[in-house]
Simulated assay, not measured.
Amino acid sequence: MGLMAKRDGRYAAVGISSDTEMGSDGVIFCTNVEGSQPVIYYGYNDGKSSAYKSGQNPAAASNRKVWEQDGHFMCSFTQPLSLEIPGESALNLAEKHHLLVSTGSIGDSSEPRYHGSDKIASSEPVDLTDNSALTSAGVPRLIKAHGSLMLVAWVGTAGIGILSAQHLRLTWVGKQIFGKDVWFTIHRAMMVLTALCTWTGFALIVTHLKTLSFGHPHNILGFIVFLISVVQVAGALLRPSPEARLRPLFAWGHRLGGLAAYLLSLVALFLARQLPQLDLPRYWLWLLTGAIALDVVVSLVFMAIHHCVGDSRVDPDVGSPSKHEAPGSSLRKILLAIYIFFSAAFVVAMVTTLALSDA
């Protein structure tokens, strides 16, 4: 048997379970405390917490070999078919069991911390005496739903909302939807959808993990994006009137918050491919790169239109809005339609890839 993880303050573990969920399982740990050689422990899962039950390198785990290479450590050993964990009933490894594989950090007391999302489970009970390849339980549905909602939000609706606020303020001048300027109605609708998808996706992943987990940069950035989205919506609801002295301050704060959330969300999407539960193909990164390139190119074309046709781009937040539609309005409408079409195509392709993925 072999276990591997990143070295320095990390562990790799395999749980021996009757199902695909953590709880009341025997566990074999391979840990690497910084400055020392990797060691093996037997342990036990009590609910969502784990604890060592044996001393270092139990005698039953024979032929032990440990080594470090390329930033990782590995424990290799021979395990008898009877896994005897002190204080617990022996497990007969000749019987089929689900394997729960995880990695995480080690606490100050050298005890394993909760692994969060860094886990994977075998799809079927495994015969450990059979050396054939194992298959995982696949990507959980809640993770797929979470990822799909985040893709719709930050590859789809957010971009449309941002472009409408940046480049369409002097388009459809004099026309309104529900009593508001067309550009503002588009912006508000898209950003509300972005917020709703983000909040729902956040709720789904917390439900799946049953806790807030910050063990991966993707998780940290995702939580920051969630917090910014809450602040952005609260700020929009409480925004001062156009004549208020603080209106320019609100306008710039709202823009910077939206831009920060957008950029951080894209970084989080790139990092998602590193998550152990996902097995996304390499072309998924090219799809994401293509979606970002689309945003950049379309923004540059919008700016070129503004420059070439002499659009003054008066900002209603800090100045008096124009009562006349700016030159190049038809081009902006066509460009928006092209952007929506290709943005939707990228979202569909990425969500489909995620839905069909297996870990």
Rank of each mutant, 00 (worst) to 15 (best):
L3D: 09
A5P: 04
K6C: 07
R10D: 00
G15L: 03
S17W: 03
S18R: 12
T20K: 14
S36Q: 13
V39W: 06
Y41S: 06
N45E: 13
D46T: 15
G47D: 11
K48C: 01
G55H: 04
P58R: 04
P58M: 04
A61Y: 08
A61L: 15
V66H: 04
V66L: 07
Q69M: 07
M74A: 15
M74V: 15
F77K: 01
F77P: 01
S82R: 12
E84Q: 13
E84W: 00
P86D: 08
S89F: 01
L91E: 12
N92Y: 09
N92A: 14
N92G: 08
L93F: 12
L100E: 08
S102V: 13
S105W: 11
S105M: 11
S110F: 05
P112S: 00
R113P: 00
H115Q: 09
I120Y: 00
D127E: 11
L128P: 02
N131T: 14
S136Q: 10
S136F: 06
S136G: 14
V139Y: 10
R141S: 11
L149E: 08
L151T: 14
V152A: 12
A153K: 06
W154I: 07
W154P: 03
W154H: 12
G161L: 10
L163V: 10
A165Y: 02
L170E: 15
G179D: 07
D181Y: 02
V182D: 10
F184A: 11
T185G: 11
I186C: 04
H187R: 09
H187F: 05
L193F: 14
A195M: 11
L196M: 11
T198R: 03
W199F: 15
T200R: 02
F202Q: 07
V206H: 09
V206L: 15
K210H: 13
P217W: 05
N219V: 04
N219E: 15
I224M: 05
I228E: 03
V233L: 13
A234Q: 11
G235C: 08
R239C: 07
E243K: 10
E243N: 08
A244H: 13
F250H: 14
F250I: 09
W252H: 09
W252V: 01
G253C: 11
H254D: 05
R255D: 00
G258A: 11
G258M: 10
L259D: 06
Y262D: 09
L263N: 08
V267S: 06
A272V: 13
Q277K: 12
Q277C: 01
L280V: 05
L280R: 02
R282C: 00
W284V: 07
W286T: 05
L288D: 02
A293F: 13
L294G: 06
S299I: 14
L300M: 14
I305Q: 03
H307T: 14
H307S: 15
C308A: 14
V309S: 03
G310Q: 08
S312V: 12
R313Y: 00
E325R: 02
R332I: 02
I340M: 08
F341D: 00
A344K: 01
A344I: 11
F346N: 04
A349L: 14
A349F: 02
L354R: 12
